[in-house]
């Protein structure tokens, strides 16, 4: 699954009484750790300093929750490491 497409979206109900400008499409991330279940041993790891920045030791669990701007900009250069 491509990194940029693990976001799922939904459309909240927008009330006419809503005081603020409505957010039509809400987005949430479904990172890999939701689907892995019991973590298999021997997964590929980040080096220590990169792990500190990434927030996880294992590459497959890295989920930076890119904002929409970063997603658009990032789609040209796939930046895997933090």
């Amino acid at each position: 699954m491509n990194r940029h497409t693990w976001y799922r979206t939904y459309r909240p109900y927008i009330s006419p009484m809503d005081p603020c400008p409505p957010i039509k499409v809400k987005r949430y991330s479904t990172p890999p750790n939701l689907f892995v279940g019991f973590q298999p041993p021997g997964l590929e790891q980040f080096p220590a300093l990169a792990a500190l920045k990434a927030g996880t030791l294992w590459k497959c669990f890295y989920d930076p929750y890119y904002s929409l701007k970063e997603l658009k900009r990032g789609s040209e250069n796939e930046t895997a490491s933090p």
Partner: peptide, 27 residues
């Protein structure tokens, strides 16, 4: 200091991993 933080972070991650994988020798 960042080196120490990185080493400690790896320790924390591995400790949490080892809670559920007590017999993973490599870890």
């Amino acid at each position: 200091l960042e080196e120490i933080q990185a080493a400690d972070f790896v320790i924390v991650e591995l400790a949490l991993y080892l809670h559920t994988h007590p017999d993973d020798l490599d870890a």
